[in-house]
Design a protein around this nucleic acid. Structure first.
Lengths: 185, 185
DNA sequence: GCAAGCCTACCTACTGGTAGGTAATATCCT
DNA sequence: AGGATATTACCTACCAGTAGGTAGGCTTGC
């Protein structure tokens, strides 16, 4: 399905991951898609609505990812599968969209803020579950709670993803993923 | 010294830590300081100049911090001293300014980008040195290089600082600091 | 006298959002 | 089947507000 609606969301996704939610405008989006601003407003009445739709899309994608990861045999494979999601961002010099939304949190109206926090927590819970499984079956070894460990890993790889954008730190994201796999063993 | 120049920088600091570099305007700054926009332009001709001055200020503060931390007897105390810097941010619901600048990197002109990257790398090197000392004298134990470990810790605590802003994650920053002290032992 | 510091008044470009119109498609009623 | 009626999707043209920035004038202290 390649409707205008999904095209807008897709391009908004890319722009959010490059510049953050407040770092792009409807005009930017319109130019990229070669449609008019009013057409975007037709599908997403306000920018907050676009933000909310983005969060809902990410939540769906996260749930799909969770289902997919559960088919993998080991916690280690699941963690690597989780890391793999960000590989394309790393290649394209982008940040994590969820993180990018978090940084602009204070500039958002409350309904959007709520969606952002919900999305972020969904991700943390998915990662937390993977870590808990690994801890229980002896694959992983760490001292904090699974949730705390999830926060630490999640933040670390997303920060690395951000730093990874400058040439000086090229490869940093992959190094960080590898380091975590080794550190948890 | 409480000049208009330093007042502007100080308030810009707070706004950057709340909303990011592109999340505040000269008008916001002028309102807070009860001066006119043109007066800010008198001290910082362009917003990029203000950004560069911010980076230079942070670099000086980082160097001062480094000197101070070197007076502390152990690597663990130095690491805790480093963490302590962010305590006021955590209390005020703010992000790390260095991190906040990084997220908006793509929206900045090149001269400012350079300063941001320089500032970020200075911090990573300071943290890296602390970790190396701790590794060498047996206080700390970790597998990656000191620099890689510095990236991981730096990103993790700053991400936690960001998440810490929502009530749902209150206390997360301190938990993360404590977790790192324990994990490195 | 003159420079620093701050001001009023203004500019251009762009922001998110709105009003109102057109063409195509779908739905309904006889 | 054919005509009336909505609905969808897009458009042009605009709005008020805000962004960063500029020109030029008024104080104040050396």
């Amino acid at each position: 399905m390649n409707t205008t609606y999904t095209n807008i969301l897709q391009h908004a996704d890319a722009l959010i991951q490059s510049n953050g939610f407040h770092g792009f405008s409807y005009a930017d989006l319109a130019k990229e898609l070669d449609i008019r601003k009013a057409s975007i407003h037709h599908h997403f009445a306000t920018k907050a609505d676009l933000g909310i739709a983005f969060c809902q899309l990410k939540c769906e994608q996260l749930k799909q990812l969770e289902s997919h990861l559960k088919t993998l045999p080991s916690a280690k494979a699941r963690l690597q599968g989780y890391f793999a999601v960000f590989q394309s961002c790393a290649n394209d010099g982008q940040m994590c969209g969820i993180y990018a939304m978090q940084t602009d949190l204070r500039l958002m109206a409350e309904p959007l803020q709520k969606q952002v926090l919900k999305m972020a927590d969904l991700e943390l819970n998915i990662l937390s579950d993977i870590l808990q499984v690994g801890l229980d079956n002896g694959e992983f070894n760490f001292k904090p709670t699974a949730y705390q460990q999830a926060v630490i890993i999640c933040c670390a790889i997303k920060g690395a993803l951000m730093l990874n954008r400058s040439e000086h730190h090229a490869g940093l994201f992959n190094q960080t993923c590898d380091a975590w796999i080794e550190m948890l063993a």
